[in-house]
Amino acid sequence: MMRILLLGGTGDALKIARQLGPDHVYSLAGLGKVPDDLACAVRVGGFGGSAGMARYIEHERIGLVIDATHPYAAQISANAMQASRAARVPCWALRRPGWQPQDGDAWRMVDDWRELSVLLAAFKRPLFTLGREPLAHLDDIPPHQFWTVRCLDPHEGNARARILATRGPFTLEGERALFSAEAFDVVVSKNSGGSATEAKLEVARERGLPVVMLRRPELPAADREFGDVAELLGAWRRISS
């Protein structure tokens, strides 16, 4: 049997992990809750770069690496490709399509935090859905702003920031209630794609709110790339049958 090393970090990765038996390994960075109901082995923590991952692949006799990490985890994806090549095993990647602007959307694209900060100067109550990055900037919040930061990491925030430590999926009804209660005037997001966190964009559209969208990083080309979980699992079943 071809042993799989699944690199996780998204809800889609967990869907794949639930289809894997005890011979396979699901590797997580250790952020958030670690699943305890899987048949496959679960590994938590880093590998020590691409060289460390290559050694792990060889030592554990891995026959296929599946990169199902977050679309913005560019370094991990690069390490996965380099390690698989060094160990001479194939690397498949789940490349979830990004969201596309629709009629009524007012997206403003940025490449980094500096550009984002410049654009946000005109607003008072942003909702950040970038993960933990805004937590490093809580001491730099302009006096005219109050931030709401939604991420996995609990944090006490401060007088001008509220931290919502929560995990999707988020419903349309729940997002409507949150937006109504907090009176956001701009949404800050990564273009993660998928349905789990898309409802915020629909509510922003309904309310006529601008969205500051962080562009996706360029990811290395994998040996095979798949747009959804079903397509990837179908290909794996065909080669393992």
Rank of each mutant, 00 (worst) to 15 (best):
residue 102 Q to V: 06
residue 26 Y to M: 04
residue 148 T to G: 01
residue 172 L to S: 10
residue 190 K to V: 10
residue 17 A to K: 07
residue 25 V to S: 04
residue 105 D to N: 12
residue 106 A to I: 10
residue 35 P to C: 09
residue 72 Y to M: 02
residue 132 R to V: 12
residue 163 I to A: 14
residue 9 G to Q: 15
residue 137 H to E: 04
residue 33 K to M: 14
residue 39 A to I: 08
residue 234 G to S: 06
residue 43 R to W: 14
residue 232 L to W: 00
residue 199 A to I: 13
residue 162 R to D: 12
residue 65 V to L: 00
residue 196 A to C: 10
residue 70 H to P: 06
residue 183 A to S: 11
residue 80 A to Y: 00
residue 120 L to K: 05
residue 62 I to T: 00
residue 99 W to C: 08
residue 142 P to M: 05
residue 78 A to M: 00
residue 106 A to G: 02
residue 84 S to P: 02
residue 76 I to R: 06
residue 214 L to F: 06
residue 93 A to K: 10
residue 34 V to I: 15
residue 83 A to E: 12
residue 225 E to P: 15
residue 238 R to E: 12
residue 161 A to W: 00
residue 190 K to A: 12
residue 193 G to E: 10
residue 188 V to P: 05
residue 181 A to H: 10
residue 55 R to S: 13
residue 111 D to Q: 04
residue 107 W to H: 04
residue 234 G to D: 07
residue 8 G to R: 11
residue 191 N to P: 10
residue 123 F to T: 07
residue 124 K to A: 15
residue 28 L to V: 11
residue 235 A to K: 00
residue 119 L to F: 02
residue 179 F to M: 09
residue 165 A to T: 03
residue 197 T to G: 15
residue 207 R to N: 09
residue 219 L to T: 00
residue 84 S to G: 13
residue 46 G to T: 15
residue 229 V to H: 02
residue 113 W to L: 00
residue 92 W to Y: 03
residue 99 W to K: 13
residue 202 E to M: 05
residue 226 F to K: 02
residue 162 R to H: 03
residue 198 E to T: 08
residue 210 P to H: 09
residue 21 G to H: 11
